[in-house]
Design a protein around this nucleic acid. Structure first.
Lengths: 187, 187
DNA sequence: TTCGTCATGTAATGGGTTACATGATTAC
DNA sequence: GTAATCATGTAACCCATTACATGACGAA
């Protein structure tokens, strides 16, 4: 999750950790935050995996190299070729995990770098996920709606409307995708 | 989180684990799921804390008692007096954690059991939380909106609209609360 | 010189999920 | 008798958060 987001942001341009978090907030702030407590360890892991290098202005720290102890300056993170490859790899994975609440936004944010066919699959996956919820909420409302207290009812109705709204949004996006990119155009 | 939800549902009536999860899905399904993998261990912890008792039809298992090994029947969970007390305690806590994305829905679901003053505080906390996000999203859109790609823009706009919609909903709820329960009416 | 914000980082913890394993009950 | 669903539970893991600690740098 964080990993994909970091790869995506660094793919646009090298950034240091603090900047990265600002961009994270700006891009995904409506959905999730990400604290430094997860960001820095993630960057460390990614460096060890060879997906990025750290550049503190004096030296470039690659995977396996000893950390520059005692330094306290900006550290710019930059994707390696492997990192870019990894990014493409993650973008191509359109599995159920791509359309969960927490993940969908991150995948969507990098749709311009994503294969059109994968885009549609993710949008449709997300939509059918939400449609299941829609059904559940409707059944719940019609079965026990009259017995529910004021607040539970309010919550259910607001939840249902939110889901319906997102479904409409997705449907529009899917139609646009199909229009701009009819199936059969590719390959 | 799960703990509060379980206390709330069992406060209405005793249920067994499977039923509990169904109710959880029906009530909070629009926001989150909860798997058995977290439900049963939570029930165990709550039993050990003395907040509920397990009743498998033959024997009632209270905190500290040895588990009935080998049994495979329905186990009905029922709140104890301490459990009900704990529920009230959690309901009265209107801290920042009450208005985070993951928690707000659960608190709201049990608003009918919550003190009116606490209700308003949680609604307002939630609203100002969302208003911060709103500002962030607006700043992001006006600063970098023109440089953003189609999808990032779509995501930001949809996110902003979602937040705006929830803010309106909250504002209505707060007004209703104040009308039904003017400050100064209590105590 | 002190305050705010930029900037990097760790340790402890939290609160869940997935995958698996098993058995009981119901409907066909 | 067998498939679906009801029902309970564990082990391994995951992905983050909070609280804390440190320090650089610019503006008042």
């Amino acid at each position: 999750m964080l990993e994909l987001a970091v790869l995506g942001l660094l793919h646009e341009s090298p950034l240091h950790g603090y900047e990265l978090r600002q961009r994270l907030k700006a891009t995904l702030g409506a959905f999730r935050a990400f604290s430094y407590g997860s960001l820095y360890p993630t960057l460390r892991r990614m460096r060890d995996a060879g997906w990025l290098v750290e550049d503190d202005g004096d030296a470039v720290v690659v995977a396996g190299a000893p950390a520059l102890t005692g330094r306290r300056g900006k550290v710019v993170y930059k994707l390696t070729a492997e990192g870019k490859e990894r990014f493409q790899e993650l973008l191509a994975e359109a599995g159920p995990s791509s359309w969960e609440d927490e993940t969908f936004g991150v995948h969507f944010a990098f749709f311009s770098q994503t294969d059109p066919a994968v885009r549609v699959r993710i949008l449709e996956g997300r939509r059918s996920r939400l449609e299941e919820r829609q059904e559940g909420a409707r059944r719940s409302l019609s079965r026990t709606g009259s017995r529910m207290d004021r607040y539970t009812l309010q919550l259910q109705e607001h939840g249902l409307e939110s889901v319906e709204r997102e479904v409409r949004w997705l449907t529009e996006l899917i139609e646009t995708e199909r229009r701009d990119n009819p199936p059969g155009t590719a390959g």
